Amino acid sequence: MSIQHFRVALIPFFAAFCLPVFAHPETLVKVKDAEDQLGARVGYIELDLNSGKILESFRPEERFPMMSTFKVLLCGAVLSRVDAGQEQLGRRIHYSQNDLVEYSPVTEKHLTDGMTVRELCSAAITMSDNTAANLLLTTIGGPKELTAFLHNMGDHVTRLDRWEPELNEAIPNDERDTTMPAAMATTLRKLLTGELLTLASRQQLIDWMEADKVAGPLLRSALPAGWFIADKSGAGERGSRGIIAALGPDGKPSRIVVIYTTGSQATMDERNRQIAEIGASLIKHW
């Protein structure tokens, strides 16, 4: 067993022997301040990774656009098919120029040779490549099948209805392509620590998230040296922004954090800054 596999296998073990965790309302004060600064709703939840206990939450059962955070769930569904012998990570998928959609920095470079399922998941999570996500959605049967996968996990809230990039439209009061912070946090925890996926697939999923290259201005910008984070960000229309993450000190994750916002007129930089400040408060009061 590799060191990384050992780390993920012992996530519940280490967490069980940690000192009790206590909620700190100071972080919620910052979440509410972010709402004021952005002029928009902000949803927040913080779960203990081992027990699933909610440590703090704000608007945990209000719907927010998922945006690209759905790509972690998508690759979880792909990995479940791999575990069941219905898919192979090494299978190569070929596609054409007509398949390319807006923001496809990886797939646009491989029109000639195609990409493997493993490479597509890596591109979808680490670079948020939209064509990679659409190609992977095709392998599982489309958005409705991802929703069905989530329902089978016990998540009857999260739903995907459309493809990239239309799913980022974020129309107010439109339930399409949305989740709730509580539902997303619980589902992410199941994917990373539950028995739904094999140990190898859980490790692969967290490795992809740990290698995320496009979430630097968010929670990662607030992390002290030595902290662990595996995350996936999302951005959408109407001032929408979000991030889902597993993080913790001492090089291992111990909490799940989900943050979503929508309806702001603020710039992307300002949305990023507010999420980073929430992260800084979380870490300060850990």
Rank of each mutant, 00 (worst) to 15 (best):
R63S: 08
A276D: 05
L135D: 01
W227F: 08
D250R: 13
R41A: 10
A245Q: 01
I125A: 04
A84S: 12
V82C: 11
C75H: 00
D161P: 01
M1C: 01
A123I: 04
V31W: 03
L191E: 03
N134E: 02
A245R: 00
G194I: 05
E195K: 11
V42H: 02
N272T: 08
D161S: 07
L199Q: 14
E164M: 00
M67V: 10
E164Y: 05
N134F: 03
R118L: 12
E166R: 12
T186A: 14
Y95N: 01
I259L: 10
T112M: 10
E119V: 02
V117H: 03
F17Y: 12
M1N: 01
T187Y: 03
G90C: 09
F70S: 07
S233C: 02
K53N: 15
D33H: 15
A170G: 13
D83K: 04
K144P: 11
N50P: 14
R81F: 10
L100W: 05
G251N: 15
L160M: 12
M180K: 14
L160E: 02
A235G: 11
D231H: 04
G236T: 05
V101R: 08
H24G: 14
R59E: 03
D48L: 04
S96Q: 12
L192D: 01
A148E: 14
L19F: 15
D207N: 11
D212R: 04
R7T: 14
R91H: 09
K213L: 13
L19R: 08
E145H: 14
L192H: 04
Q274Y: 12
L167E: 03
L73W: 03
Y44L: 11
M209S: 02
K32T: 09
F149N: 06
A246H: 04
G236L: 01
L79E: 02
V82K: 06
S240Y: 03
G90V: 12
T186F: 15
M209A: 03
R220L: 03
V42Y: 06
I140T: 07
Q4R: 13
E175N: 13
S80L: 11
D269S: 13
V42K: 00
L205I: 10
A276K: 12
E175F: 12
S2V: 08
R159T: 09
G239D: 02
R238S: 11
E145M: 13
A245V: 05
V117K: 01
L218A: 04
E169W: 14
A34N: 03
V72D: 00
N168M: 06
L167S: 06
V117A: 04
I3A: 07
S80F: 13
P165G: 06
Q88K: 12
L111D: 07
L120T: 04
T178Y: 02
T147F: 02
I45E: 04
E35N: 03
P20E: 12
V31G: 02
E26K: 12
K232Q: 00
D269Y: 13
S240L: 02
H24S: 14
V106N: 07
P20M: 04
H24P: 06
P12E: 06
A34G: 07
L191C: 07
P60Y: 09
R271A: 11
L205Q: 02
G279T: 07
